[in-house]
Design a protein around this nucleic acid. Structure first.
Lengths: 198, 198
DNA sequence: CCTACCGATCGGTAGG
DNA sequence: CCTACCGATCGGTAGG
C-alpha cells in the first residue's frame, strides 16, 4: 500500500483534498456538496468517508496547511540579516510563490476559512493574527529606521496583503507568467509607486 | 402607503435587502437561509415572498446596484480634464468612498456575484469587464505619456483594485477612521510607494 | 467500495 | 402576514 502510494505519488486522501480545493475555489465551500466532490473523484458520496472524516475536515486541513506555509516563510524572512525593505520584498515574493505554486488550495484557505467551526475557527484566527503581527512588526521597523514612509502600519500591512489577492482569482498554471515577472511588477508598484519621479 | 414609506424612509423590501447583505457578508450567500433572513426582519420565511421574488433576486439587486455605482463614478472620472495620475487618484477615492458608505452591500457584491445564475452572471461579468477596461485605459494613458512607470497595465490594474479589498472585511462605521484618512494612506502607498526616497 | 437510507434543512408555494 | 406543506438535496451512517 505504501509502495502503491509512492508510485502514484499521491494518496486517495490527497486526491480528494485537491479535488475539494478546486470545487471550493469554483463554487465556494457551502455550495460544494459531497456528491459533487464524489463525482469528481469517481466515487459515491458515502465512499468518501473511508478516506476523510467529514467535509469540514478537508477544509480544516487546507486552512492549516496553508497557514503553516505562510508561517514557515515568515520564519525564514525574520532570520534574514537585512534591512526591512528586503524583508518586505521577501514577504511579497513569498505570497506570490505560494499563490502560484498551489493556487486552488491557497484560495480555499483564503476565502473559506470562516466556515470552520469552533474551536478550529479561533485557532485559525490566532494563527493568522500572529502572522499579521509579525508582518506589521517588520513594517514598523522600516518606518522607525527611516527606510519607509511614515504611513499607518496597519493600513500599510493590509493594503500590501490585499494587493496580491487577485492572483488567487486570476492565476492558472496555464497562464505562462512566471512568479518572478509578477514579483517584479507588484513589488515595484508597492515599493516605489506607480508615479514616475520627475 | 407611499406616505408611510416616506416617513420611515425605507420600504420593507429595502430593509430585507439590507439585512440580507449583512448575512451575505457574515456567512456568505449560500450559507444564508431564507429562514435566517426572515428571523432578522421578524417575519416567517414564507412572508418574505410578499416583498421579494426570490433569494437570488436580492443578490441580483445588490450586485447590479453596486456595479452601477462604480460605473457612475467611472463616468465622472473619465470626464475630468486632468492628468492620468489625478484620474487614478479619483478612482482610488471612489473605491474607498463606496466601501465606507455601504460596506455590507459592496462586500456582498464583491464576494457573492458568482452565485448569480445565467443570464445575469454573464451580464454581470460584462459590466465588470467594462469597468476594468476603462480603468486599464487610464493606466495605459498615464504610461504612454510618461506620468506612470512602464509597468504591465493589467497587473497594475489588478494590484490597485485588490489593494483596497481589505476594507470590505475590516471596515465598520464604528471604526472612527474617515474615508479621507484611508485615502491618504492608500493613495500615497500606491502612487509613491512604501520606500522613502533618499 | 457500494446500496440503501437517515433526519435535517433547503427555497419556495398554496391557501386563507 | 401566517400555518401547513412540497419535493429536492444536504452531510453522513449502517451494513455488507
Amino acid at each position: 500500500m505504501i509502495l502503491e502510494q509512492s508510485i502514484k505519488g499521491k494518496s486517495k486522501k490527497q486526491l480528494i483534498s485537491e479535488a475539494a480545493a478546486q470545487l471550493f475555489r469554483d463554487k465556494g465551500y457551502t455550495a460544494t456538496s459531497m456528491r459533487d466532490l464524489a463525482e469528481k473523484v469517481n466515487l459515491k458520496a458515502s465512499s468518501l468517508y473511508n478516506h476523510i472524516g467529514s467535509k469540514e475536515e478537508i477544509l480544516r486541513d487546507i486552512c492549516f496547511a496553508n497557514g503553516q506555509r505562510f508561517n514557515e516563510g515568515m520564519e525564514e524572512v525574520e532570520q534574514l540579516h537585512a534591512p526591512a525593505v528586503e524583508k518586505v520584498r521577501a514577504l511579497i515574493r513569498l505570497h506570490i510563490q505560494i499563490a502560484t505554486e498551489d493556487v486552488t488550495s491557497v484560495t480555499a484557505f483564503n476565502d473559506e476559512w470562516r466556515h470552520l467551526s469552533e474551536p478550529y475557527l479561533s485557532d485559525f484566527r490566532q494563527l493568522r493574527r500572529n502572522y499579521e503581527r509579525r508582518f506589521q512588526a517588520i513594517i514598523e521597523e522600516g518606518i522607525r529606521n527611516g527606510e519607509f514612509k511614515a504611513l499607518d502600519p496597519f493600513a500599510t500591512l493590509y493594503t500590501i496583503f490585499s494587493s496580491m489577492r487577485w492572483l488567487y482569482d486570476w492565476y492558472k498554471p496555464e497562464r505562462k507568467v512566471s512568479p518572478e515577472q509578477l514579483y517584479e511588477q507588484i513589488s515595484t508598484l508597492l515599493m516605489s509607486g506607480l508615479v514616475n519621479e520627475k
